[in-house]
Nucleic acid binder design. Sequence first.
DNA 1: GGATAAGCGAGACGGTACGTCTCGTCTTTTG
DNA 2: CAAAAGACGAGACGTACCGTCTCGCTTATCC
Lengths: 214, 214, 214, 214
Amino acid sequence: MSSRSANDSKRRPGGRSARVRQAVLDAAFAELGEKGYGGLSIEAVAQRSGVAKTTVYRRWPTRDELVADALDSRSDRNEPIPDTGSLRGDLKEFCEGVRAKLTSNHGKAMLKSLVAAVDQSPEIIETVERFWRERRDVGGQLIERWIRRGILRPETDADLLVEVILAPIYLRVLLPGGPLTGDVLTGFIDLALDGVLEDVTPRTDKHRSGERNL
Amino acid sequence: MSSRSANDSKRRPGGRSARVRQAVLDAAFAELGEKGYGGLSIEAVAQRSGVAKTTVYRRWPTRDELVADALDSRSDRNEPIPDTGSLRGDLKEFCEGVRAKLTSNHGKAMLKSLVAAVDQSPEIIETVERFWRERRDVGGQLIERWIRRGILRPETDADLLVEVILAPIYLRVLLPGGPLTGDVLTGFIDLALDGVLEDVTPRTDKHRSGERNL
Amino acid sequence: MSSRSANDSKRRPGGRSARVRQAVLDAAFAELGEKGYGGLSIEAVAQRSGVAKTTVYRRWPTRDELVADALDSRSDRNEPIPDTGSLRGDLKEFCEGVRAKLTSNHGKAMLKSLVAAVDQSPEIIETVERFWRERRDVGGQLIERWIRRGILRPETDADLLVEVILAPIYLRVLLPGGPLTGDVLTGFIDLALDGVLEDVTPRTDKHRSGERNL
Amino acid sequence: MSSRSANDSKRRPGGRSARVRQAVLDAAFAELGEKGYGGLSIEAVAQRSGVAKTTVYRRWPTRDELVADALDSRSDRNEPIPDTGSLRGDLKEFCEGVRAKLTSNHGKAMLKSLVAAVDQSPEIIETVERFWRERRDVGGQLIERWIRRGILRPETDADLLVEVILAPIYLRVLLPGGPLTGDVLTGFIDLALDGVLEDVTPRTDKHRSGERNL
DNA sequence: GGATAAGCGAGACGGTACGTCTCGTCTTTTG
DNA sequence: CAAAAGACGAGACGTACCGTCTCGCTTATCC
């Protein structure tokens, strides 16, 4: 994995290069967690990893590439898709997983790093997109399953649904917007599933609000 | 109001102090727009505003206070509440306004600044909360109106609804998540209003999913 | 003295600036003596003088300016003109003085520094020329005196004479050319004073060597 | 001869080793001419000669050895001894030759290299001495000839005379001391040949200055 | 209406980190 | 097995800002 890494398949998997590479990524990841993106200095990473500064620069010409690589080397792949037996239960578990990750020390640092670093380098953007795509894949499969079971309407836009449910969670991590209790998560889920309109209008009217001023 | 500013109501509104203050805030705001939060240097602000560096430090001991003050001095207050005659129209207009602000150069810089600066200083948190509260107030009043008109269910949580609709917009500004076209905004609104469940379950079952596995 | 120094007459003669300046020049001079021109690093000078590297750079933008200033701040001015009562005695004393200076640790380092640095910066050239001029002035006055006393021919070119006598001394310091004993110095002086031709030709023939193949 | 070179007579005169050796020396010599001793970097030499840096280091452990070898490989041997028919003419031609060499790009770089490198390694000292010895040999033979012809006094110290005449030339190359025109050279020669004393004292008094205060 | 205290400009200072350069060593691959 | 290729540790380079400080000068307020 980490298929974009600077010097993959260098010479030998266990050679000096590989050891150096791992030491630097570990140090960078740790520094990210402690100081955040803005506080990460190449100098500190080099020192922490016991590697010469020039070596860091040789492999990762910019800070962003290092950050992207460090985050990437730690990203969970193959996350399991919740299967609790109920739609709300699955979504709740999905959200809980996201919350757990994001509110951790590293998760928060990572998210903030991405925000700070985005639109600075394509590497970071790539990382963000992969990061985002993974969530959407898990959520998407989950939703597909409930569409097939007839609980969700067939025309449901899975990506949109995932986005609407997850966005408030992400945002509350990024900006001080109140705690992320289980109830709050349930609130997001219910709102997305049920909507808030008075239940008097046939679905077919949805986009023609007509005289009822929807 | 800027009620927190270091030396408000110093001597005279048109005195040297006031002029200096304004020049610095203008410069800081401009720099924020051009370089973003991470790229804002006190040195540059001082030079751009034609003010001695020491003067900046005297009034704004930390960079965050300066940023908060600069953002604050430009924030729109008294935003009008949309009134188009339809709920979806009002929400669309509301979202369009938010989008317009956030996707502007300054808006984006400002949002990123806030994210970067949060949990560093109480001043910033205060600014974020005021910033957020204003949106919620406008959205809240808008929603209250449509509850009173019987279009939205009385128990609707206005803050929650606003959060669910706006969060994806904010997030797409912060992370590279696709364009913010009018259709996308409509998608967010519709999902929040209508939900995505097959319309077969009475509302009262909402929290007891029962055998239908909602 | 040191009339070209970066920031003369800064604020106060005993202020922090002056102290810093002196500390740096002392350190630079010492480093020059120990490591020579090529081995002098700004970093080392800064550390040795207990001054921040940036401060050194602020006052002496280039290494050469620092070197020139350091050498300059130590150069003896107002050297006494020997007066032993005899021409050869005066010249011997003059040469002994030059030798003593040049063969000292610092003298040698300084001379080599000048050679290495010359044709790199005008500052250094200026220093070399002042350095050289001082010698020529002393020697020149000495020689003038003996011209007036009728021992040296009136048309004697003082500068030329000084150059011919001193050059071998300088060169033996710069290149490994044998020891500089008192006898060697006397040899240079005698040769310059007496010449080596068979003493059969009238002076007036000097530049018309004629049939005698001079 | 280059008898000191690291790996002389390695494989075969035309083998890879020899080709590499020559390429490196050529490149080093060229770099010396262009950048001078101080500006010569092993890295540049390696690149210029199309050879791996490690190869250079293997054969010439220090920069000085490389420089010495490069200079040595180009030094003129078997310089002709001038024979113009007059002493002054011979010396003039001799001096012109020296001047021509030293004021050339390579000559100057070489001389400065020697000064800079001396007392760093025995190899360099050896080179300097050979370099110096060659001059003295040529000058010495020239002078011997004119002693035999009765123009110069028999007790003339040839080495001393050569040194006194050449030293100012060398020095003017090393330090900014004015141009080296033909007249200046003639001045050095005349002074050394004729001396500058009023011509009233018998040679035998030379070292007993007596009442006339020589 | 002239002292007087503040705010201000100017800029030196000790620091930290930057990203680059060259050094000389060491390891790994190639011919 | 030696040359080639190039990663590595080391450390100086010169720059940019940081936040602190001292110093005179200019204000505008208060006596």
